[in-house]
Every structure is written in structure tokens, then in C-alpha cells.
Amino acid sequence: MTATTPSAWRKPTSAGPLIPGLYLGKQARRTLTKVVGFLLLVPGLLWVLMPTVWMFSAAFSTLRQVMQFPPDLIPNPWVWTNFYEGFTFLPFGRYYMNSLFIAISRVVLQVLAASITGYAFARLRAPGREFIFMVVLSTMMLPYTVTMIPQFVLFKNLGWINTYYPLIIPHLGGSAFLIFLFRQFFRSIPEEVFEASRLDGCNYFDIYLRILMPLSMPVVATASILVFQNAWQDLIGPLIYLNSTKLYTLPLGLATFRSSFGASPWNLIMAVSILVALPPIILFFVGQRYMIAGIVVSEK
């Protein structure tokens, strides 16, 4: 126990109430914390919802009503066909499948690769480790704008233009962001967890697979959500590398759709945007079960 506690916690602090002068029972204090926390969340909730509400109302309005200035928040009349109309204007069904394919491939590849690499950086000592880690971080530091063109030339010479390879294969090593994320998480797991297993004859890969990963569901879930979101929203990659419309992804379709009209049909755009935003939202809603109620590191 003592070995795992932060230095700041070593000196036991004296008992104290949440608010000075207010003494409550343990249960009461817990409830109070929750109530206060909940109340603090509400204004933020409104703040976050504000643009979203407008987006939803627009998705159910006629174009003429969306064009009201300033915007009117309650649709009159309610239009349900926007979703159908927007979705069928371009082959969004196909784009959906294309986007799903890329996003899922990337989640699997990147989370696997980054977790194992992050584990190496966090727990294994080797000459050159810190240097390589700085190289990893350095890939985040150069704006994509200037590497985009040389990279395009490279993939063109590989014959990969107008394929999904440039959008997936370069991620087979994970990304700096994820590697760094996993490294930070894995470094905060107490050493004792590993010692016992090493005595049992586990090699480093076994440790990663059997001990570390099961303990790391929160970060794996988080990483998956983030990669999915990132892949789902990527516009510039597909835009640069894809030529055929049948390979287009959702953001690319949406970009075309948006500006396909001189006068933007915001009601249709909003309806489509809501449909486009659904998979990451569902993933988050489901994924938080693993993220939040994750198995907690327990030391004996």
C-alpha cells in the first residue's frame, strides 16, 4: 500500500468537513457532494446544448424557417422528411459503409499498435528509449500542411492513390497521441502488479496481454472512442487521396453536399449531420460503460 501512494498523501491529513463548520455523517456528506456536483453540471449542460438544440430544430424545419434571422427555435411546421431527403440526395448509405470500414480498421490497428508500443515505452528499459520516445512525440509537432504533399508523392509512387491504403496503413504503428496516452496510463500502474507475474514466468508479451490489457479497459475504451472520432471526422485525408465518388467518406460527402447548393439547405445539412454524428455518439454512450466502470487496479 505505502509504496503506491503519492508522496503528498503520506502525511495523513486531519479530519475535516466539506465546508468548514458543517459537520455531517459520512452518508450525508457523500450525498451532498453528489447534489452539489450535479447542480454545478447543469449550467454547463445548457451551454453545451445551446448550439445542439438549434441544430436539432433546424433539422426539423423548412428551409425558409431556418433562414429566419435571428433563428427561430421551434419548428413550425415540423418536417420529418428532411432526414430522408438529405440522406438520399447523395449516396450517403455507401459513404456510411466506407467511413465505417476506415474507422473500424483504424480503431483496431491503432489501439493494438499504440497500446503495445505505449507499454514498451512505459515499462521496458532499453538503450535509446527516451530518444525514440522524443521522435514519437516529434511527429505531432510538424503541421500536416507541409508533409501532405511529399506524402502524396510517396503514395502516388506506391500506386496507392484512389485507394484506402494511405488512410489506414500509415497508422499501423499507432499514432504519437495514442502511444503517449497509453504510456502515461501504463506508467501509473504500480510495479507490484507486474512483479508477481514475472516470477510466474510470464514474458513481457504475456504481461501485456494477460495482465495489462484487462486492467486497462478505461484507457482502451477511451482510445478507441478517440480514434473512431478522429477517423470519422477526417476530411483532408480522403479528400486528397480519393478520386472516385464511390470511395468517398461521410465528411467528404457532407462537404460536397453542403456547398452543392449556392443557398445552403441548412435544414437538410443539419438532418444529415445528425445522422452522421450518430455512430460516434452511440459508441461513446456504450463505450463509457467500459471507460467509467472499468476494472480498477487493485493491489493486495
Binding site: 448550439p51 445542439t52 457532407l254 449531420s273 455518439i281
Partner: peptide
Amino acid sequence: YYLPAVLP
């Protein structure tokens, strides 16, 4: 709270 991250 997560919504803003996924809106276009």
C-alpha cells in the same frame, strides 16, 4: 457533454 466533439 461529449456532443460538441462529434458535431461537424
